[in-house]
Design a binder for these strands. Structure first.
Length: 888
DNA sequence: GCGATACA
DNA sequence: TGTATCGC
């Protein structure tokens, strides 16, 4: 009896494992457990389940041990190296995952997965079922027929009879003969040596089959081909036997039994969590474990006063604002939510377009004393945002004792994603209501103030409750990890500093930028013309694809360098190519100008806030793995520092009328920290003596006196010093200073001989980190480096460099943050008409009323230099100017 | 040596 | 979603 409309999916498990393993190198979770094969396999499986949702399905694996092919041909797969360890340990997890999906899995001793698939697909096809083989392996296309097709979810292509022919040039029934001729080096199947895919296709198209070829062997025109075929007839037929799939497999199950059951989502959640498969976790059915019944909307003054009483009584609560924008300087307040104890939360709408609400001003008047009372503790998630919005409403929030985003960041700065949604998932195993569920996405997005109050209440109360609960989990964790002090003395006190900086913003010289835009535009135009001229046709220079066409096809330059999705056109490659052709040099110039023009010159104007007339760069405190701040809109860290173009952009940052800039930057803070932390006496002495450190290094490395150091020697020494900080290898160093590899090695050797303390330090840091699992900075900031135990040597080396570099960069970041807090305090105490407006790299910039510029300069230098007691002096260079460039 | 942001 | 360029 044939059943219509029945279908079955047969997944070629083993081949996906190998494919994933080889396609993705180095993937592992934060504990260093390799996950590349599992990841690739899971994605394939998840995609199949998501898009096809088959009722009948099985994953087929190779069985352990030999199979019949070895008996026919002992050398079968002989050249295949044994399964690598880091793949082997992934395999049990893959089986667990298949089990958790409740998908039947099959393997049969003595047979390969391909044979089992062959047998099953024939059985199912005979019943009239539609069979889909899930695989990317061309060997299996020999099974494709009317009822059997093959699908590769990775490339998302389906092969039916025509598809196979189109892709491989032969029909499914010829595939076996094709394989017999071509062989398979990875399985050590010989085929006919000298016959490649092209020739095999031609032969099969002409003679139909292997037998056809050999019965008509005299008609093979090319003599050499004929000789090869004749000489290797046995090989050809042996190869066919090896590639031929067996249908008579003793199957442990029948196709009818291969029914998928409901997946065990909890088991999958556990596994994905451990492996850190974020996207797959996200795809699991949401688990919403918070109870909304204790949530309420505040719509009367009585209710509000009652809540305020509660805040005064319990003396700690979580706050969260709902607004109309993610940019705090543009956001309009829609409402506030609070949570003082788990299970209970309230939403206080003040700016919704519909529904009855209390008046914002009255509400804020009632809330102000509580929010500004520093003895009543507040928790928040990225509370800097809320503080900016509230400060614009005239309220200075005090008493922040926990920011869940920062807590999460301190606990694991390399983790990406410290959003409330992430924390709810990882700390509470709760899937929060997503903002897009309320306001939609893209063009149809509405403002939060337009959301109806009932839904807004659920959303906002949930956020407040999650913040409260997460704070209760993360704060004790900070304590046990020894991070509380860093939190209380650095990260939390830094928040009000950043709040003031972001609110202050910076003035931009718009007319100047317009002329600069024209100037850069002219440069681009002429550069563009020259490029088109040289290329012979106009094209989109910014498209790496089109550029690649021109460079490598049209001009025939050899794109021997890097690839991934085509040939690379990176700086490195273009510089190499510049030796042979002028065009790459022009492209390089074009690119740098274009980037500056588009990301700074033209976009700075768009960032100007219409209300304040200034730009309000946002400083992110929870992004970098080393502890540095990052900035966006605009990203100040990326403005070229030395080039004329970069300086022109900095000149667009100007102080208010009657004000000046005072800029201060730490001189050599990283090398100084190397001296301090490593305790290397010679390096310390150099800094204590206050000498030019690069010149001293030059004298030490090149074995001469300080007076004999010429500029070129100093330049090389400078590169060596950089190399030390960034963990540069001798090869890279050689490239940078333009000497041979041997010479660079010698330099490093000489350096380490002179500064033995530095060498010891650079060796000890990764060792200790390997023991502890993390490195620490001068103020105890941690960064976990699981890759120190990664069997992948490349990843391990990288982690070693990060270990050293993080202690240096991270310590510098610690001190800079401390300095910002000190300077901010000092300015407040002295009441100087000055405010901090920029922080970038190792530099701080104040906007100061002109008449007190010198005073501010002295204060800035003093506070920064005495930020923290060290065994070497910190030196800060300062300058005053009428724009940011001048202040150098 | 990689990171962070921005653009295609 | 991926790649490049600036930075440290």
């Amino acid at each position: 009896m044939t059943k219509k409309n029945e279908e079955i999916y047969l997944i070629d498990g083993s081949s996906y494992i190998y494919r994933a393993y080889h396609a993705m190198g180095g993937l592992s979770n934060s504990k260093g457990f390799p996950t590349n094969a599992i990841f690739g396999f899971c994605n394939m499986l998840a995609k199949t389940m998501r898009e096809r949702a088959p009722k009948r399905i099985a994953v087929i694996f190779d069985a352990k041990g030999p199979n019949f092919r070895y008996e026919i041909y002992p050398a079968y797969k002989a050249n295949r190296p044994p399964t690598p360890d880091d793949l082997q340990i992934q395999i049990p997890r893959i089986h667990e995952i298949v089990e958790a999906y409740r998908i039947p899995s099959i393997s049969v001793p003595g047979f390969e997965a391909d044979d089992i698939i062959a047998a099953l697909s024939r059985l199912a096809a005979d019943k009239g079922w539609k069979v889909t083989i899930v695989s990317g392996d061309k060997d299996l296309t020999q099974l494709v027929s009317d009822g059997i097709s093959m699908w590769d979810p990775q490339r998302d292509v389906t092969y039916d009879r025509e598809g196979v022919s189109k892709k491989f040039g032969v029909f499914p029934e010829q595939m076996l003969d094709f394989l017999a001729l071509v062989g398979d080096s990875s399985d050590n199947i010989p085929g006919v040596p000298g016959i490649g895919p092209k020739r095999a296709i031609a032969l099969l198209q002409e003679f139909g089959s292997l037998e056809g070829i050999y019965t008509n062997i005299d008609r093979v025109a090319q003599k050499s081909v004929k000789e090869k075929l004749v000489g290797n007839k046995d090989n050809a037929f042996l190869s066919r036997k090896l590639a031929e799939l067996r249908f008579e497999v003793p199957l442990p199950v029948q196709p009818e039994d291969l029914v998928v059951q409901e997946q065990d989502s909890e088991a999958l959640r556990e596994i994905f969590k451990e492996l850190e498969f974020k996207k797959l976790l996200e795809e699991l059915p949401a688990r919403r474990c918070l109870d909304f019944s204790g949530y309420c909307t505040i719509s009367t003054m009585e209710e509000l006063l009652e809540w305020v009483e509660t805040f005064r009584r319990v003396r700690r609560f979580a706050v969260d604002l709902e607004t109309t924008s993610t940019e705090p300087m543009r956001a309009k307040l829609a409402g506030l939510s609070f949570c003082a104890e788990s299970g209970k939360a309230c939403y206080l709408p003040v700016g919704h377009t519909q529904g009855s609400q209390l008046k914002k001003d009255e509400v804020l008047t009632v809330l102000r004393p509580v929010l500004e009372d520093e003895t009543i503790f507040k928790f928040g998630q990225n509370i800097k945002y809320d503080m900016i919005v509230l400060k614009r409403e005239g309220i200075t929030v005090k008493g922040i004792t926990c920011d869940t985003m920062l807590a999460s960041y301190l606990l694991d700065p390399s983790r990406r994603g410290h959003s409330l949604d992430d924390l709810a998932e990882s700390c509470l195993e709760h899937r929060t209501i997503r903002i897009t569920e309320l306001i939609g996405t893209g063009k149809n997005q509405i403002l939060f103030s337009e959301v109806d109050i009932e839904n807004a209440t659920k959303y906002a109360c949930e956020d407040a409750e999650v913040t409260c609960r997460v704070a209760e989990i993360l704060c004790p964790r900070l304590e046990t990890e020894g991070l509380t002090k860093l939190m209380n003395e650095v990260e939390l006190p830094l928040i009000p500093v950043l709040v003031d900086m972001e609110i202050a913003g910076v003035r931009i010289d718009i007319p100047y930028l317009r002329t600069l835009s024209e100037e850069f535009g002219e440069m681009l135009k002429s550069s563009e013309e020259a490029i088109y001229e040289m290329a012979g046709e106009p094209f989109n220079i910014n498209s790496p694809k089109q550029l690649g066409e021109i460079l490598f096809k049209r001009l025939g330059l050899k794109g021997v360098k890097k690839t991934k999705t085509g040939l690379s056109t990176s700086l490195e490659v273009l510089e190499e190519l510049a030796l042979e052709h002028e065009l790459p040099r022009l492209i390089l110039g074009y690119r740098s100008i274009y980037k500056l023009k588009s990301t700074y010159v033209d976009s700075l104007v768009n960032l100007v806030n219409p209300e304040t007339g200034r730009i309000h760069t946002s400083y992110n405190q929870a992004v970098t793995a080393t502890g540095r701040l990052s900035s966006s809109d605009p990203n100040l860290q990326n403005i070229p520092i030395r080039s004329t173009e970069g300086r022109k952009i900095r000149a667009a940052f100007i102080p208010d009328d009657g004000y000046a800039y005072v800029a201060a930057d730490y001189s050599q803070i990283e090398l100084r920290l190397v001296a301090h932390i490593s305790g290397d006496e010679r390096l310390k002495q150099a800094f204590i003596a206050g000498e030019d450190i690069h010149a001293i290094t030059a004298a030490d490395v090149f074995g001469c006196s300080l007076a004999e150091v010429v500029p070129e020697m100093r330049r090389r020494a400078k590169e060596i010093n950089f190399g030390i900080i960034y963990g540069m290898g001798p090869f890279k160093l050689a490239g940078r200073i333009g000497v041979g590899l041997k010479m660079a090695k010698q330099y490093l050797e000489d350096y380490y001989r002179t500064y033995a303390g530095v060498r010891q330090y650079m060796e000890e840091v990764p060792e200790r980190a390997k023991r502890d699992g993390y490195v620490t900075t001068i103020l105890g900031r941690k960064r976990f480096l699981p890759d120190l135990n990664n069997p992948n040597k490349i990843a391990q080396q990288a982690a070693k460099r990060m270990a050293v570099n993080t202690t240096i960069q991270g310590s510098a970041a610690d001190l800079m943050k401390l300095a910002m807090i000190r300077v901010h305090d000092a300015l407040k105490k002295t009441g100087l008409p000055a405010r901090m407006i920029l922080q970038v790299h190792d530099e701080l910039v104040l906007e100061v009323r002109e008449d007190v510029a010198r005073e501010a300069q002295t204060l800035l230098k003093r506070e920064m230099e005495h930020v923290y007691p060290l065994s070497i002096p910190l030196v800060v260079d300062t300058a005053i100017g009428k724009n940011w460039d001048e202040a150098h």
